[in-house]
């Protein structure tokens, strides 16, 4: 592309910065609103900054519903899900990239096809399966039913394809077992891909809403999105509790924002490595 001149770059920066601010505006507005009083929010004149930050809104929200519990539920289930997914996806991705067996390509096509499957198609039967397993309304049920993740399998497959073949052949020549080659050579060399897959999957499961809302009923098993929505719906008199709802939303989003700003480069990297998923 023709290189932009300095002044063109400044104009571009200003346009894009404006768009960028627009993109994060809902987050900023949410945070500011969480510090306002009900009167300020409902007042006829628009105020941008809270006149007297109401930090008590946060403790108020925490008193009304166990948000920390929800966050912990989301965090712990997402962590277990991600670890289990990475373990199983690594095995399968290794088989799909480094092993020879009949039907390998057919298997990959089938797995690829399941990615197109709307999750909703499986909800009713999965619901029955979960209840037959006795895992209804439990975090274990949330974990078990989410272990499959075709997207992370694709990511790992892409990453494993990039591992130099000589490395694996050398290990085989040294007499290493396939199990050992996977965990000692392929996984360490694909470390970035694994981190990327883990982050994408973690975000998805931390934020997951519909399916967990179907299989959990009791407050102590709610994930954050489920709990937040219940809270939102239960605070019927909208206007009055609006700053509390914003405070609760801030609480529920904050962990991810922190993770995002700490690990931003891996998110960006995740996209780069997932290019070529076409198969």
């Amino acid at each position: 592309m023709e290189k932009a001149t300095r002044s063109e770059r400044i104009i571009l920066f200003l346009i894009l910065a404006f768009i960028g601010v627009f993109m994060v505006f809902p987050m900023i507005w949410m945070f500011l609103s969480s510090l306002k009083t009900t009167e300020e929010v409902l007042g006829s004149t628009m105020t941008f900054l809270p006149s007297d930050p109401q930090w008590s809104n946060f403790s108020g929200a925490l008193e009304l519903a166990p948000f920390l519990r929800y966050i912990w539920n989301s965090f712990s289930t997402a962590t277990v899900i991600v670890l289990a997914q990475l373990f199983l996806s690594s095995l399968l991705a290794y088989a799909l990239t480094q092993m020879e067996f009949r039907g390998r390509n057919v298997l990959f096509m089938i797995i690829l096809a399941t990615y197109m499957l709307p999750a909703a198609t499986t909800y009713v039967p999965s619901y029955i399966i979960i209840s037959r397993m006795g895992l209804m309304d439990s975090l274990a049920g949330v974990v078990v039913s989410n272990i499959v993740d075709v997207f992370s399998l694709f990511l790992l497959r892409q990453g494993f394809l990039k591992v130099p073949g000589e490395l694996i052949e050398a290990a085989r020549a040294d007499g290493a077992s396939e199990w050992r080659i996977l965990w000692r050579i392929v996984v360490p060399t694909s470390k970035n891909t694994l981190i990327n897959a883990a982050l994408i999957s973690f975000i998805g499961h931390f934020n997951n809403y519909l399916w967990p809302s179907l299989i959990t009923n009791s407050e102590e098993n709610f994930l954050i999105s489920v709990g937040l929505n219940r809270f939102f719906n239960s605070q019927g008199a909208f206007g009055q509790t609006f700053p509390l709802i914003m405070a609760a939303t801030v609480i529920s989003i904050l962990p991810l924002i922190i993770v995002y700003f700490l690990l931003q480069k891996y998110f960006i990297g995740a996209i780069s490595s997932s290019e070529g998923i076409k198969g």
Binding site: P26, M27, W29, M30, I203, F206, N207, Y209, I224, S225, V226, L228, N229, F232, I245, M246, T249, S252, I253, L256, I257, V259, Y260, F267
Partner: peptide
């Protein structure tokens, strides 16, 4: 990265 549920409430 933000949860759709939370941000929909904000929106």
């Amino acid at each position: 990265i933000t949860p759709m549920v939370g941000m929909s409430i904000v929106w």
